[in-house]
Amino acid sequence: MNKIVKKEFFSENVVRLVIEAPRIAKARKAGHFVIIKCGETGERIPLTIAAADKDKGTIDLVIQRVGVTSRKITELEEGDYITDLVGPLGQATHVEKVGTVLACGGGVGVAPLLPIVEAMKMAGNRVVTILAARSKDLIILEDQMRQFSDELIIMTDDGSYGQKGLVTDGMESVIKNEKVDLSVVIGPAVMMKYASMVTKKYDIPTMASLNTIMVDGTGMCGACRVTVGGKVKFVCVDGPEFDAHQVDFDEMLLRLSGYKDIEKEAENKYISNKCKSR
């Protein structure tokens, strides 16, 4: 059981939770994730660690409401407990000084990008960060990102904040202006697919952090398997970061849709039950 010490809304559907987890706070590195389960009948889902405070023994998770499980988690309040939390899992990000790093975060994918941007900056890189979202209210962690970025670009689909356009538009303009040595892209699978197509065009090494379906998160079930460079890899133990140019994103998108209908139905049922009980 892990206590929630702070809860903050980034937007209507995006919540930041600060959770007591001293061992995880101490052991985690950029790129690591946790598996979280809420309630005795809850589902196990993976969430990348957005930040940690070793001294206070806490970790930050940023959660977007997209289904029953994320709703249940985001409905918890300060002082409540998470039933089960395990981590840090996965391979940590490989961080070294390469020159200029172009970090691109889409939607809630900005949260797992934050510790990587921080680590890349600390390693002595010039970091150019692009935050992209549909509209202004979905842009998160801007101040924290600015702190570790030499340059910060904001892209919104509707132009309500920053520049109007997709993440890929922002990437093109950066790449045209300066030499980029490494790119990191984290966000929805479809965003990572198109973002990595841009860097492939310019031959820029790129890594993506994959957010597949998982059950145990320790290599036991294989639900998270993806094809990378023609080989089957498990995101939980081999990843979550891979060479984005080798990832079969189409297959990943397909596999992510495996439970979509069931999940939608479960979410609708959950919402209507909640309304009835009010």
Binding site: T41, G42, R44, V215, C221, G222, I262
Partner: peptide, 29 residues
């Protein structure tokens, strides 16, 4: 082998036995 609906016995049995996924009152599908 990565099409939807193809899973390892570990995943299949874990969902059913550990997560009780066949019970409509649990969240695991």
């Amino acid at each position: 082998e990565n099409y939807i609906g193809i899973l390892s016995s570990n995943e299949y049995l874990t969902r059913i036995n550990l997560m009780d996924a066949a019970n409509p009152n649990t969240d695991t599908p």
